[in-house]
């Protein structure tokens, strides 16, 4: 599901510009499958699939596969259009040091919308 994440984010000059002060690693969990995404100056440097023994990341977003699939469908249905919609439904949990996430919220929303089907590759 995250195959095209780096290419789509790094290919979006406006999104990279919005995140130019972001240097962090965060974790995306799809069911129990963890992935650590490393961001350097707004560009995705790596997406590393787990499992990890001592994962090092600032914050994590954990949701069931079905919730991610709905979020990333080409035309998400009402209630599944945004990560905060999933949070409100208690389908997505955001945990850890939220400062990098909240202080760059529009950027991370752009990153997390990038896997959506139909988005430019």
């Amino acid at each position: 599901m995250l195959t095209h994440l780096a290419a789509r984010v790094n290919g979006d000059a406006n999104l990279v510009r919005r995140g130019k002060f972001v240097n962090t690693s965060f974790l995306i969990a799809i069911d129990n499958a963890d992935h650590i995404v490393r961001i350097e100056h707004g560009r995705i440097a790596s997406v590393t699939p787990g499992p990890f023994i001592t994962p090092n990341y600032s914050f994590a977003l954990r949701a069931p596969r079905e919730a991610w699939e709905n979020l990333w469908s080409e035309k998400p249905i009402p209630g599944f259009t945004d990560i905060f919609a999933l949070v409100k439904k208690k389908l997505l949990r955001i945990e850890g040091d939220l400062h990098p996430f909240m202080s760059n919220l529009l950027y991370f929303k752009g990153v997390l919308a990038a896997p959506r089907s139909g988005a430019a590759t």
């Binding site: 909240m102 202080s103 919220l105 529009l106």
Partner: peptide
């Protein structure tokens, strides 16, 4: 910016 980020999905 965070306020806009909060409401953007709405």
């Amino acid at each position: 910016e965070v306020s806009a980020g909060i409401v953007s999905g709405l």
